[in-house]
Write a protein that binds this DNA or RNA. Structure first.
Length: 570
RNA sequence: UGGGGUGUGGCCAAGUUGGUAAGGCAGCGGAUUCUGGUUCCGUGAACCGGGGGUUCGAAUCCCUCCACCCCAGCCA
């Protein structure tokens, strides 16, 4: 899958380890990774990074990457998520081929391993209740106490474990525990639970099982069974590595993968924890996992982000073990960078202000030849955009009393109309009651088409759309979800920092008529001087175009006038 | 106060055997531009967490201190 690989690659500690392993002939020089989601929710961009990493390393070193669902806890998981996850991984551009696995496929084998552990005297059935187990576990500074069942005969544990499987006991009355060290400074080693009773049907195995393995047991063994060589996970599992290795050391396993931990991704002005994302949904802040403001893969896709941009972003942010918060600007840069050279331009007036060109004949129409991609006109060809006596310009492009560096339209001033004439504002019509500017009268310079004006310089160029030939559209202007860089670490509730204007719906936008030719559902455009937009294939209807703003263009002007707190300001 | 980690310019992050600090993003200049976009040049005072030490020489080795993150689910 060479086309899915970002162009820029750099060194990182995991790449170093992998290359060293290959050089030393470890694992016969093979590289096998895996992406192991738990099907209990939707994937977000943090998972995307992990996906890119795992599939990326596999591709780089001619190995393979497995997609394995870590479905060991039936009370939290649902098949609904399995399809969604597969769709997201596929959309990102990765193909796991035949290597799709489910931890639940290994249940029988895992069970056998558990019996092996018991028979080796390395595990026992414990009859302490949940509260007692916690109490016996001790604290970080105090060692735990051994369970009274810890030294029961192997035969007894084996018998009990088999009866657990047979369903003879109620939930919470018994668990299988590894016999390690109740005094270990690493709490994970204080006789961790290996199997628990859950009288709950499993999405994939139905009611075949009523005992389910814990993550620590299932994960390392699944990796070993599959021949994974490098098992990448996030930092919080660092403490679990001794346990990961312990299980594999005790049992007769086909391989012993190496667990390597890296810091999870964080991005400013958003949150990336399942719990918080769920809360945003539950409290109605967003419409669901696929809301275009969500940092989920589904949300980014709906917003209009491309898989390429997300892959490049993953590469750009790098890989390390230091906790960090990546600037949202980096994500925005990735999508602009990707879209800029490959998306056609169009003019779209978001908030129309009517302009009457007094000296332009009423019935006259001129078709202005405009390249879809001005940086290289022949690349995407041209469209003809109609110019008429009445046009719309952006309300923001006119100021009655402009500040210093404003070089757009103002009373008595001139501007260039993109791909058209230079006009001069000669009159301002206001609503007598509100004082609001509702119409402008201008004159055009007939000698300014396609040439520089004579005897003066016109600094500004603004976009416009014919008033009677423009096509109506609805624009959804999305912005970051939070107003502070680190809503989750600000102290207090992250919900206190919601951006009240993370979505602005513009209902009377007008686009030049060429949109009828090129406006295929799912297409992306740059609306000149505004930003990149995605023609939403789900929200659009046969008689109404609905666009999502993917990201705005960078704007020096926004900075000059002191940032209005939108996408490009901080 | 136990264990496991991490600290390189505003934000990420290279730096693998010690030789005297890549790159990206953001910012700031300027050039080009019928998008205040793009592109192109240029630019930033980095005590490499602090303090000791070893060495001709340390971000890289040793000691020590500090800060921050993770761990007491029959979650993953």
């Amino acid at each position: 899958m060479p086309e899915t690989q970002p162009t820029r690659k750099r060194g990182n500690f995991i790449r170093t380890i992998i290359e060293r392993d290959i050089a030393q002939g470890k694992n016969n020089g093979q590289v096998v990774t895996r992406f192991p989601p738990e099907p209990n929710g939707y994937l977000h961009i943090g998972h995307a990074k992990s996906i890119c990493l795992n599939f990326g390393f596999a591709a780089d070193y001619n190995g393979r990457c497995h997609l394995r669902f870590d479905d060991t806890n039936p009370i939290k998981e649902d098949v609904e998520f399995i399809e969604a996850i597969k769709e997201d991984v596929r959309w990102l551009g990765f193909d796991w081929g035949k290597y799709e696995y489910h931890a639940s496929d290994y249940f029988e084998r895992l069970y056998q391993y558990a019996e092996e552990l018991i028979m080796k005297g390395k595990a026992y059935v414990c009859e302490l209740g949940p509260d007692e187990i916690r109490e016996y576990r001790g604290t970080p500074t105090q060692p735990g106490r051994e369970s009274p069942y810890r030294n029961r005969p192997i035969r007894e544990s084996l018998d009990l474990f088999r009866r657990m499987r047979a369903g003879e006991f109620a939930e919470g009355t018994r668990v299988l525990r590894a016999k390690i060290d109740m005094a270990s400074p690493n709490l994970n080693m204080r006789d961790p639970v290996v199997y628990r009773i859950r009288k709950q049907p499993h999405p994939r195995t139905g009611d075949k099982w009523c005992i389910y393995p814990m993550y620590d047991f299932a994960h390392c063994l699944s990796d070993a069974i599959e021949g994974v060589t490098h098992s990448l996970c996030t930092l919080e599992f660092e403490d679990h590595r001794p346990l990961y290795d312990w299980f594999l050391d005790q049992l007769d396993v086909p391989s012993h993968p190496q667990q390597i931990e890296f810091a999870r991704l964080n991005i400013s002005y958003t949150v990336l924890s399942k719990r918080m994302l769920r809360q945003l949904i539950d409290e109605g802040v967003v419409t669901g996992w696929g809301d275009p403001r969500m940092p989920t893969i589904k949300g980014l896709r709906k917003r209009g982000y491309t898989p390429e941009s997300i892959r490049q972003f993953s590469e750009d942010v790098g890989l390390a073990k230091a906790n960090s918060i990546v600037d949202m600007a980096m994500l925005e840069n990735a999508i602009r960078d990707d879209l800029d050279p490959k998306v056609p331009r169009l003019m779209c007036v978001h908030k129309p202000l009517k302009v009457v060109i007094d000296n332009y004949e009423e019935s006259r129409v001129e078709y202005m030849k405009a390249p879809y991609y001005p940086n290289d006109p022949e690349k995407m060809g041209y469209r003809q955009t109609p110019f008429t006596r009445e046009i719309f310009i952006e309300q923001d492009d006119f100021m009655e009393d402009p500040p210093k560096k404003f070089f757009r339209l103002a009373p008595g001033r001139e501007v260039r109309l993109r791909f058209s004439y230079i006009i001069k504002c000669v009159d301002v019509v206001k609503d007598p009651r509100t004082g609001e500017v509702i119409e402008l009268h201008c004159t055009y310079d007939p000698d300014s088409l396609g040439k520089k004006p004579v005897g003066r310089k016109v600094k500004g160029t603004i976009h416009w759309v014919s008033a009677n030939q423009g096509v109506p559209a609805i624009l959804k202007l999305y912005d970051r979800l939070f107003t502070v860089p680190n809503p989750a670490g600000e102290g207090g509730n992250f919900m206190d920092y919601l951006n009240p204007s993370s979505l602005e719906v513009v209902r009377n936008a007008v686009i030049e008529p060429a949109i009828k030719d090129v406006g295929k559902p799912g297409a992306r455009f740059q609306f000149e001087r505004k930003g990149f937009y995605f023609l939403d294939p789900e929200d659009s209807t046969p008689d109404m175009f609905v666009f999502n703003r993917i990201v705005s263009l960078k704007s020096k002007w926004e900075r000059i006038r002191g940032g209005a707190g939108t996408a490009h300001t901080k």
